[in-house]
């Protein structure tokens, strides 16, 4: 076990339970086996550098991986929570990524040393649910695998639906085929047989008490599933989501859904999780002038009639921020459920 374990324990004893916000202690790990699951997804097994057992984790947990150059990225654990000797993560080399995953792909070798944070769980599984639906899109399969392992072990009723563009681009299919829970899994993709090419909407049931839905994958996928679920009357308390198997709270661009109302027309425009207000408005034919698109230049400055914005820009001064009379819809969101804005 790494030297960090003892201070972690001491910190807990001294201060009680740590909240999720406090920095977790780090562990020194070695890359064990790794496997190219697809052209751009690799699964990586991490073992303790000194061969000690690892801190236990619950299904849905993620770890911080320190990639070097100060880069830290979050990856969901996808192995069984019953494992005590390894953590397994799936890493997508995303051309749109900010460099972390591509760097990890580039330096990957057996025996590579990596520093990671202790597992944290922001996507916990309600293990007492009567029925559980796991909806995974693409790389969003990773936390779902750990959840499926756990639910199978507990003997719970569940279904895992896994969407991808084509079979060769879907990771972990071999593992699923060889698993105890293979009968609970449905694969959906464009090159699958007709009856399996199903839209999330086709397999989403009407809400019933005791059924929980978990969604993980690209933002558009999550937004679409949640929108359908809400339309059908699912309660928020039974909807659970995580983006890309990474943690949105660390990503300034991420954020929950809210609604925009245009003051003088009364038009109501939903802003999906991860979608910018500017993009949501554009999708409804309302084009705001933008330039930097990251809250620096103030070009899209918009007046607020009602509601509380969640300012995420760097343009507004502190006084303007507190006044909440304007906001920058290219990057800022809402603290209230609805923002009423003044545009023509």
């Amino acid at each position: 076990m790494s030297v960090c374990r003892k201070p972690a324990l001491a910190a807990r004893l001294a201060y009680g339970d740590r909240s999720e916000k406090e920095p977790a202690m780090t562990l020194n790990m070695l890359v064990g086996k790794f496997r190219r699951e697809t052209d751009d997804i690799v699964s990586i097994e991490l073992v303790d550098a000194d061969g000690h057992p690892l801190p236990a984790f619950s299904a849905g947990s993620h770890i911080d991986v320190h990639i070097g150059d100060g880069l830290v990225r979050q990856y969901s654990l996808c192995n069984s929570p019953a494992d005590t000797d390894r953590y397994v993560i799936g890493v997508l080399k995303d051309p749109k990524s900010r460099g972390g995953s591509a760097a990890l792909h580039g330096m990957l070798a057996e025996g590579l040393r990596l520093r990671i944070g202790e597992p944290r769980n922001l996507f916990p599984l309600d293990e007492t649910a009567d029925r559980t639906l796991l909806f995974a899109g693409g790389i969003g399969i990773t936390p779902m695998l750990a959840m499926a392992e756990r639910l199978k072990m507990l003997g719970r009723r569940f279904e895992l639906h896994y969407w991808g563009r084509s079979l060769p681009r879907m990771a972990f299919l071999d593992r699923i085929a060889a698993s105890d829970f293979k009968d609970n899994v449905r694969i959906h993709c464009d090159d699958a047989p007709e009856d399996q090419r199903l839209d999330p909407d086709d397999v989403l049931p009407n809400p019933e008490a005791g059924t929980h839905l978990y969604v993980c994958g690209p933002q558009g996928f999550i937004g679409c599933v949640l929108e359908r679920a809400r339309t059908r009357g699912w309660l928020e308390s039974r909807l659970h989501k995580e983006y890309f198997g990474t943690i949105v709270s660390d990503d300034p661009a991420g954020g929950g859904a809210f609604t925009i109302r245009i003051a003088h027309t009364g038009a109501i425009i939903p802003v999906n999780p991860g979608q910018s207000a500017v993009a949501a408005l554009a999708a409804h034919g309302i084009e705001l002038p933008v330039s930097c698109e990251q809250g620096v230049c103030g070009t899209c400055l918009t007046r607020i009639v009602d509601g509380i914005p969640d300012h995420r820009d760097s343009y507004l001064t502190d006084d303007e921020r507190e006044a909440n009379a304007v906001f920058l819809p290219c990057c800022s969101r809402a603290k209230s459920e609805c923002l009423v804005i003044d545009i023509l």
Partner: peptide, 18 residues
């Protein structure tokens, strides 16, 4: 002149606005 601004401009722009 409508400058195209980058994230690194944020502090300078804030100073100008103050």
């Amino acid at each position: 002149l409508r400058p195209i601004l980058l994230p690194t401009d944020a502090p300078g722009i804030r100073a100008r606005r103050v």
